[in-house]
Amino acid sequence: MVNQKNKKKTNFRETFKKNRPLFILSLPGIIWFAIFSYLPMFAILVAFKHFKLNGNFIHSFITSDWAGFDNFKFLFSSGDAALIIRNTLLYNIVFIILNIVIPLIVALAINEIFNKQLSKLYQSVLFIPYFLSMVVVSYVVFAFLDPTSGFFNAVLSMFGHKPIQFYMEPKYWPFILTTVQVWKNIGYNMIIFLAAICGLDKSYYEAAMLDGASKWQQTKSITLPMLTPVLVMLLIMAVGGIFRTDFGLFYQVPKNSGALISVTQTIDTYIYRGLTSMGDIGLSSAGGLLQSVVGFVLVVITNGIVKKYDRSQSLF
C-alpha cells in the first residue's frame, strides 16, 4: 500500500517534471479560470436555496433554507412550457445551422473574388451589423415594419396593397427573427473561416493545380475537408448554448408585443417576464442552471459522437 502510494507519488512527480515547461505556459490561464470562472461558480448553489439576506453573502447563503428543487418548478408550471421549449430549440437549431453554413459560403466566396480591394471592403461591411446593439437594431427593424410609416409598408402601399400590421401577426416573425439573427452575426463566424482558410497548407493546392483540378473541385476536396475541425468545433460550442437565447432579439426586436408571444417566447423571455417583479435570485439561478445542464448534456453527447468518428476533432 505504502509502496504503491510512493510509486504514485514519484510517477506524479516525474510526469510533472517532464511537463513542467508546458505547465508553466498554461499556468496563467489556469489561474485566470480558477479566479474568474470557478470561484464565482459557488453562486450557482443559490438555485437550491430559499435565499434570504442575513449579513454578508456567504453568511446569508449558509443561513438560508435549502429548497431542494423547489426553485425549478416555475419553469415547468406554465401551460406553455412545451411551446417555450419548442421555440427555444427550433430557433436555435436553425440558427446553429445557418450561422455555420452562411458564413462559410460567404468566407469561401470572399476569398475567391478577383478584386481584392472589393473583397476587403465586403469583409469590413459585413461586420457592421455586429456592432449595432439589439436596441438600435430594434429601432431599425421598427423603421422598416412600422404599420403607419414603415418603409416596407410604404412600398406595399405603392403597389396598392394594404399595410401589414407586422407587430400583430405572429406568422412573419420566425422569418424576421431568423433574418435579423443571421444578418447580425454573419461577420463573426466568417472571420473564423477566413482565418482558417488563410492558415491552410498551400502545398495541397499546388499539387491539385498541377493535376488540373478546377477551383470547385479544390474547394470540395481540399478546403472543406480541411475545414472540418473548425466546423465541428463551432458546432459543439453552439450546441452548448442550445437552451439559451439572445434576450434582445426575442424581447426588444419584437417590441415586447404580446400578440407575437406564441413565436417570440423563449426560455429567457419567459424567465424575464415571470421573475423581474419578484427579484428572487434563487429562482433566476435555477433558470440559468437548467439552461447550463441541458447545454452540458448535449455537449457531452455531441462530443462523444464526434470522438467516436475522429478522436482528434473532439472538443475534450
Binding site: 460550442m237 452548448g240 442552471l289 475534450f316
Partner: peptide, 20 residues
C-alpha cells in the same frame, strides 16, 4: 481541455462575479 470547457456551460452569474 475540460477545465476550460466547463466555464462556457456553467457560470456563477452576475452575483458570483460581482462578489469575486
Amino acid at each position: 481541455n475540460k477545465f476550460s470547457v466547463m466555464p462556457m456551460l456553467f457560470s456563477g452569474g452576475m452575483i458570483g462575479s460581482y462578489i469575486v
